[in-house]
Every structure is written in C-alpha cells, then in structure tokens.
C-alpha cells in the first residue's frame, strides 16, 4: 500500500504554495512515497519514554536591551523588492481571496 496518494501530494503542494503541474504531481507522488516508506524506520527506534530534542544543545531565550540601534534604511530594505511604491513593498491584492 502506498504511504501517500496523488491527492495528498496535491494538498501538500497547496499548503506549500507550489503551483505544480499534473506531471509534477505524479512524479512527486512516486518519489515521496518511496522516501516516506524509507524514513518510517524512525518509528522502530525510540520508545515512548524518550524525550524529543528540537535542538542539539540546550537553548535559552536570548534577550537584549530594548534600545534603538542602527538598522537598514528604507532604501536598503526595499533594494531587492520586486515592486515598490511610496517607500513600501507593493504586493498583489491580498483581500477578497477565497478560502
């Protein structure tokens, strides 16, 4: 039985904001199925009493004083933008989208 169906891949592509073609969906369905089957080996190892690690080293929150410091100028921040208007990023419409 396959671990992942073509419909699931289409759903993942939508969640990932990737407009894939039908051919790509077929291709990735086969490959992701193989990869997922192979990585499923992780379930054979760790027992329930093992705590998960998100990082290799213990992490603590890092704080700094809340002081104004030099940062990018508006021109620098906008220097790589695909479209700019009035010192702002110009973006396609974001309202009125279907869910």
């Amino acid at each position: 039985m396959s671990a992942i169906t073509r419909d699931e891949v289409a759903h993942l592509a939508r969640l990932s904001r990737l407009a894939l073609t039908d051919d790509e969906l077929d291709h990735y369905a086969t490959q992701l199925d193989q990869i997922i089957e192979s990585v499923a080996k992780v379930s054979e190892v760790a027992a329930d009493d093992v705590p998960p690690s998100s990082h290799a080293l213990p992490l603590t929150n890092v704080f700094r004083a809340d002081e104004v410091r030099q940062s990018l100028t508006p021109d620098q921040a906008l220097s790589g933008a695909p479209a700019v208007e009035d010192d702002r990023f110009r973006v396609p419409r974001i309202l009125g989208e279907e869910a």
Partner: peptide
Amino acid sequence: SSGYYDAYYGQAQKVRTV
C-alpha cells in the same frame, strides 16, 4: 502536518535524543 506529526517529526526528534 496534523495526524502525521507524532509518527514522523516527533519520532525523529526522539531518535535525535537517542
């Protein structure tokens, strides 16, 4: 993704501990 998180990502994090 929900439904698979524990079986995959969560489990991989436990392997990381081991």
